[in-house]
């Protein structure tokens, strides 16, 4: 059993992949929090708490939901918008929920405008620029999500959540698997349920990792 935990960074330049440190992916019906496998219900609660605690909770929808390449993608996009609207409704003064797209994976450096989009090859720019302290990836192809999550863990203090349609992401601090419209809506329900019960952080900066 590994002692390694996937915690908010900055861990260090080029952190190890969590998989190489012994972190395993959850089975269906499970999720992981900081690399520890938990029942999915617990992950909903924790993800909702993290969103409600954050000063700038942000959703990063990727190409798989931004582009209406099939009916399911369009429905997921609707659910993502619903989750964002819920975050806005539940936000307390001083909290600024954001919805920032990752339209494709082209390494657009140095042309990227970090205020309005995120790029998997330098996601830290968008996180630093907008002072994002909690984010959720959804609809990003696994390889690009892993790359981004590792860069974020290495260089920022942002808490990362992955709503993955496949088997989940070890490199996120919290990861769901088999993402669906229902799961996104359920997370929105949890956010609403915990509204007012969680104290938001006063600043966006958090302490470093303790691995």
């Amino acid at each position: 059993m590994t002692q390694y935990r996937v915690l908010p960074g900055p861990e260090h330049f080029l952190p190890p992949s969590a998989a190489s440190m012994g972190i395993c992916l959850p089975n269906p019906g499970e999720a992981h929090i900081n690399g520890v496998i938990v029942p999915e219900e617990k992950a909903y609660e924790e993800a909702a708490k993290q969103f409600l605690m954050a000063k700038v909770p942000t959703i990063f929808p990727g190409p798989l939901v931004l582009w209406a390449w099939n009916e399911k993608a369009a429905k997921k996009a609707t659910a993502v918008r619903h989750l964002y609207n819920t975050l806005k409704e539940c936000a307390q003064p001083g909290q600024t929920p954001m919805l920032i797209p990752m339209p494709d994976y082209r390494p657009k450096y140095p042309k990227i405008n970090p205020e309005v989009e995120i790029n998997p090859n330098h996601p830290n720019l968008t996180i630093w620029h907008n002072k994002i302290d909690c984010c959720m990836f959804i609809g990003v192809h696994c390889h690009q999500a892993n790359l981004s999550l590792k860069i974020i863990r290495g260089g920022t203090s942002c808490y990362t959540i992955a709503m993955c349609a496949q088997a989940g992401h070890e490199d996120a601090m919290l990861s769901f698997r088999d993402a669906s419209v229902e799961k996104i809506m359920k997370l929105a329900e949890w956010v609403r349920k915990l509204k007012g019960t969680v104290q938001p952080r006063l600043t966006s900066a958090k302490s470093g990792a303790s691995n």
Binding site: L66, W67, T78, P103, N113, V116, E117
Partner: peptide, 18 residues
């Protein structure tokens, strides 16, 4: 027809994609 932005997220797409 194959290059469509999801309606619900259209407004957040950078203008070059729109």
């Amino acid at each position: 027809e194959r290059i469509k932005i999801s309606e619900d997220l259209y407004d957040i797409m950078p203008s070059d994609y729109q």
